[in-house]
């Protein structure tokens, strides 16, 4: 009984390792084929535009408007406050 089982285990070792190597080799060459095909036919990936940081967002507002808002805040808070974020509604 044990001899039969050892023979079965040896069979599993050979079949199992061959299958695992075969499948991963296929996966590797499939990956290479995909990369080759996509490189050939698909357009190059465009890098997504980064979101504009807050500081730049403030800069994008008209300088005159920003100066008026800053002056108003300064007057209201006695020079202690400042605008950290300005968004259009």
């Amino acid at each position: 009984m044990i001899t039969n089982d050892i023979f079965g285990a040896l069979q599993l070792l050979i079949v199992g390792m061959v299958t695992v190597f075969l499948v991963l080799l296929i996966v590797i060459y499939l990956g290479k084929l995909l990369i080759w095909a996509v490189n050939k036919w698909a357009h190059e990936e465009t890098v997504a535009k980064k979101s504009v940081p807050v500081a730049k967002a403030i800069e994008s507002i008209d300088a005159n408007t920003k100066a008026i808002i800053d002056a108003a805040i300064s007057q209201l808070t006695g020079g202690k406050g400042r605008a950290s974020k300005i968004t259009k509604l």
Partner: peptide
């Protein structure tokens, strides 16, 4: 090989691997 469009490859890869396996 360098990947020009990784996003497309990454989408096709799981579909292809599932089919082959």
């Amino acid at each position: 090989q360098k990947m020009k469009n990784e996003k497309i490859i990454k989408i096709i890869f799981p579909i292809a691997v599932t089919t082959i396996v």
